[in-house]
């Protein structure tokens, strides 16, 4: 039988995939995609817990997370376009996310 914890495990795996993508890739669009993966991981958790607890709060939260994902993607791509206008590539070495 599939328990809630199974879904939570899938969610964790997804979170890690997203994190690895974000921390290792240089292509900004793919980094944005990694963020989508992370948000989907959150949603799997939320929906699974929603079923577990027998209320819809988690699903409502998930809807908001989707809204946030849309908004972030829109603004992120907007910035990307502005950047692209000033330079002709999106393989950006300067945007080294791990630099401190």
């Amino acid at each position: 039988m599939i328990s809630t914890m199974h879904y939570v495990a899938v969610s964790l795996a997804m979170l890690l995939i997203g994190t690895v993508g974000l921390l290792t890739r240089r292509n900004i669009v793919i980094i944005l995609m990694s963020i989508e993966l992370i948000l989907n991981a959150v949603n799997i958790n939320l929906v699974a817990f929603s079923k577990h607890h027998g209320n819809a709060a988690g699903q409502v939260f998930a809807i908001f997370v989707i809204a946030v994902a849309v908004a972030e993607a829109a603004v992120g791509l907007g910035i990307l376009l502005a950047l692209f206008r000033n330079r002709e590539t999106v393989q950006v070495d300067e945007i080294d996310l791990l630099k401190w």
Partner: peptide, 19 residues
């Protein structure tokens, strides 16, 4: 257009290790 370039950060092992 950037397909031919390096795809991962120089310090990608660090990111992977942290994750």
């Amino acid at each position: 257009a950037g397909k031919g370039l390096r795809q991962f950060h120089k310090n990608w092992p660090l990111g992977a290790a942290v994750t």
